[in-house]
Simulated scan of single mutants.
Amino acid sequence: MDYGDRPPTYLLLLQEKYAQEILEHVGMGSCKPTTTPVDTKSKLSADAGPPFRDPTLYRSLAGALQYLTFTRPDIAYAGTIDHGLHLYPSASHRLITYTDAHWGGCPDTFRSTSGYCCFLGDNLVSWSSKRQHTLSKSSAEAEYRGVANVVSEACWLRNLLLELHCPLRQATIVYCDNVSAIYLSGNPVQHQRTKHVEMDIHFIREKVALGQVRVLHVPSRYQFADIFTKGLPQDLFLDFRSSLSVRPPPAMTAGV
Rank of each mutant, 00 (worst) to 15 (best):
Q66L: 09
L87V: 14
I75D: 03
S90K: 13
A154S: 14
S126T: 06
L157I: 15
V147M: 13
E153K: 05
A64G: 11
R111Q: 11
H93L: 15
R94I: 00
W103Y: 07
T113L: 12
P107L: 08
T97K: 13
K130Q: 11
L61Q: 03
P55I: 10
G79E: 06
D100C: 12
R72K: 11
Y77M: 05
D82L: 10
S136G: 07
H133Q: 08
R111F: 10
G146Y: 01
D122R: 04
R59G: 05
R111Y: 06
R59Q: 10
R145A: 09
A78K: 13
Y77A: 01
L85Q: 12
L87P: 05
W127S: 06
K130R: 13
Y98H: 15
L162T: 13
D54S: 11
P107R: 10
G84F: 02
F110P: 00
H83L: 03
L68N: 07
D54A: 11
N159F: 13
L161A: 10
G115F: 09
D108C: 02
C166W: 01
L168S: 10
L124I: 04
R94S: 11
C166M: 09
Y98G: 06
L61C: 08
C106Y: 02
A64H: 11
N159K: 14
G105M: 00
E163S: 11
S126W: 08
T80Q: 09
Q132M: 02
R72Y: 07
S112P: 05
D122T: 07
G105V: 00
R53G: 15
L65N: 05
T109S: 15
S136I: 13
S114K: 06
L87M: 14
L161R: 10
P89L: 05
